[in-house]
Computed example of a mutant assay.
Amino acid sequence: MKMFRKREGFLVAINQKPRRFTRSPYFHEQFMEEARRQGKSVVFWERARNPSLVFVNDWTVDFARLEAYRKSGIKIVLRIDGAGIKDSRNPRKDNIIYQTSEFCDALIFQSEFCKEIWQRSFGLNKPNYIILNGADQRVFSRYGPKTDFGFKRMIVTAARWRQWKGLDQVIEVFLKLKREDTGLVVMGDDSKVPAHPSIKATGKLAHSEMAKIFRKADLFLYLPWQDWCPKVVAQALVSGLPVVCSYRGGTKELVQDCGIIVHGAKDDDLEDFGPNPVNLDEAVNAVNSLLEKGERCRERQDLYLSTMVTRYFEVFEKVLEQN
Rank of each mutant, 00 (worst) to 15 (best):
K2L: 11
M3V: 14
K6W: 08
G9Y: 13
V12T: 13
I14A: 04
N15W: 06
Q16H: 11
P18H: 00
R19Q: 05
T22D: 07
S24L: 11
S24G: 07
E29L: 02
M32E: 00
A35T: 02
Q38P: 04
Q38M: 09
F44L: 03
T60R: 05
V61K: 13
D62T: 09
F63G: 03
A64H: 12
R65E: 03
E67P: 01
K71C: 03
S72H: 07
K75V: 15
V77E: 04
R79M: 10
D81T: 11
R89W: 08
K93F: 10
D94K: 15
I96W: 00
I97C: 00
T100H: 01
C104R: 06
A106V: 09
L107R: 04
F109R: 10
Q110P: 07
Q110D: 01
C114Q: 06
W118M: 01
S121A: 15
G123V: 09
Y129R: 14
D136H: 03
R138Q: 14
K152D: 14
T157R: 10
G166R: 00
V170I: 08
V173F: 04
K176A: 15
L177Y: 09
E180S: 14
G183H: 07
G183D: 01
V185Q: 02
V186D: 09
M187C: 15
I199F: 08
H207E: 07
S208F: 02
S208Q: 12
E209C: 12
M210A: 15
A211M: 05
R215L: 10
D218L: 13
L219Q: 06
L223G: 08
P224I: 03
W225K: 02
K231D: 02
V233C: 08
V238Y: 01
G240L: 11
L241H: 05
L241V: 07
P242D: 15
G249D: 02
T251W: 00
L254S: 01
I260Y: 00
D267W: 02
G274L: 10
P275V: 11
P277N: 08
V278S: 00
E282M: 10
V287G: 08
V287T: 07
N288H: 08
N288L: 15
E292G: 12
K293E: 14
R296G: 06
R296H: 06
R296W: 13
R300F: 01
R300D: 00
R300G: 04
D302M: 01
V309C: 06
V309K: 06
F316K: 08
E321G: 14
Q322Y: 12
